[in-house]
């Protein structure tokens, strides 16, 4: 009986030790990741920090616009997927409108991604900035974002000024857009998919019924975003 109790105590002690060890490990990893220590008052470090957010917000913008029918903030949608054809009315936004929408998203979400420079303040850096101005451009094989974001970071009497950021997302949005444009024209005229025309592209198209409408999902297996094929969905009714 005594022997059993002793064994139990050993296991408890071992368990507690393991828990403490794991806590220390996780704390170290987390603090090293979140610690402002990784952010150095160096131009490259700050630029890299900010570039990461430009990358992320532009990527988010593309993912969101893709999933929501080429609108980052859909107005007429089915489960957040915009109707691009409704009652035979073609609602496909223009290329320019999509670019503006993507730009706007980046402008609106960039500061949030940067946590309003909270980390900079933790490091007792003073930051002054102007509102970011983004400009997205849909190209045949990518989407490029150019962000004008004048930022001045001060530490004591040293100042680092940053102004222009840019990123190219390896997403064939214009390619997909043109496929969609053609598909919608066919759907409008024929209420059908041109299967022969689809052989001219190399995408994955999945179509399915959803709540008395149909949803078209175009995936680009050759261009991944966050490790998954880029996806554009739209609804038709």
């Amino acid at each position: 009986m005594k022997k059993t109790k002793a064994q139990l105590s050993i296991f408890i002690v071992l368990g507690v030790l393991i828990l403490i060890f794991l806590f220390i490990v996780f704390y170290y990893i987390y603090s090293s990741y979140a610690s402002p220590d990784r952010l150095k008052f160096e131009r490259s470090s700050i630029a890299s920090y900010m570039q990461a957010c430009v990358d992320k917000t532009s990527s988010d913008a593309l993912k969101l616009a893709g999933r929501q029918g080429l609108y980052t903030a859909p107005k007429d949608a089915l489960a957040n997927v915009s109707y691009l054809l409704k009652g035979n009315l073609n609602k496909l936004p223009s290329q320019q409108a999509i670019e503006q929408d993507l730009s706007r998203y980046v402008e609106q979400h960039l500061l949030a991604c940067l946590g309003n420079f909270a980390e900079f303040e933790q490091l007792e850096w003073s930051v002054s900035y102007e509102q970011p101005k983004a400009s997205a451009s849909m190209n045949l094989n990518d989407v490029s974002f150019s962000v004008s974001f004048p930022v001045n970071v001060k530490q004591q009497d040293l100042t680092i000024s940053l102004n222009q950021f840019s990123v190219k997302q390896d997403i064939r949005l214009l390619y997909l857009y043109r496929i969609i444009e053609k598909m919608l024209a066919t759907l409008q005229a024929e209420q059908a998919i041109d299967l022969t025309d689809m052989t001219n592209y190399n995408i994955n198209l999945t179509v399915f019924p959803y709540q008395n409408a149909s949803v078209y999902a175009l995936e680009d297996p050759e261009h991944m975003i966050s490790g998954k094929p880029y996806l554009v969905m739209f609804a038709v009714k």
């Binding site: 998919i193 299967l195 689809m198 052989t199 001219n200 592209y201 190399n202 995408i203 994955n204 198209l205 999945t206 179509v207 399915f208 019924p209």
Partner: peptide
């Protein structure tokens, strides 16, 4: 259809 693009059209309630 698997030619160029892969086209899949699903019926209602399909798990995919």
């Amino acid at each position: 259809q698997k030619a160029g693009s892969k086209v899949t059209v699903l019926p209602p309630n399909h798990p995919l």
